[in-house]
Amino acid sequence: MSLTLFLILCLNGLQYGLLLFLIAAGLTLVFGVMGFINLAHGVQYMVGAYLVFAFTGLTGSFWLALVLSLIAALMIGLLMEYAVFRHLYARPHLDQVLATFGIIIFLNELAKVLFGPATLSIDTPELLSGSIQITEQLRYPVYRLATIGAGLVVAVGLFITISYTRTGMLIRAGSTTPEMVSALGVNITQLFRIVFGVGAMLAGFAGVIAAPLFAIEPGMGDNLLIVAFVVIIIGGVGSIGGAFLAAILVGLIDTLGRSLVTELLGLAVDASMANQIGPALASMLIYILMAAILVFRPKGLWPAKGVA
């Protein structure tokens, strides 16, 4: 393992982590503020990717498609909130699971019907194509760097919003003491709608920027959703800071693990054995991390303040 390869893996891990953060942020806020468990959140990621695919095809411009996709993702999120989710906030979690599961089934199938079951891809936008020299031996694709940058910008923006604006204050209050917020006479319905819409848009945004990098296919958000849950459990439910740190941690561990575990195992046992166990162990790493955190810090590493 060369230092260069290690650096590339770290950058990839960081990038994966930021993508996870974009998804986990909405999930943790929606859960923290509304106590709503939204399995269909991962589908928003898929929707984002398909939207940018469709709009790029229509307009020919990635940038225009990006803007249109974000607007459309927001609208779809708000529509789902209005039509289905708002009726479920006060319902038992089992009902929420079932209804959002139905939405996943529907949207995954719809994607298959509209775009076909095969994987699709779009080109990296021209402005960000190519790669740049970071160190003497390390070239890294500009687009990947740009997604890292975009992820960081969104994270900082979200952080500032939550820490310093009135809406952010309400969101924080809502995720720790919901009774308090309604006691203040705040329009809860509207707050919920904002949080939900922003969450859906962030997941959509993750899908948009992931589209040029990964295969676009039906069900692409499902697995990511579960990893986002792992992120939330590790970070502490309802906490944006926790989601951010945990997402980066999970991104790095997963990416590095997949490349390093087999190699490291090879030092301890013989190569064929390592090749057998390595991949299985690597895919388990983040779950093992989650289990360990459950044992030692059941509330997560950085729980939302005020959760006693």
Binding site: H93, I233, V237, N275, L294
Partner: peptide, 27 residues
Amino acid sequence: RTSGVYFLMITLAFGQMIYFTLTSLAA
């Protein structure tokens, strides 16, 4: 060690862990 919605998320995660472990059983 948890309950309610945490239990839901954690069983989901462990289920997924088992799923991925099965997919990596090359033999």
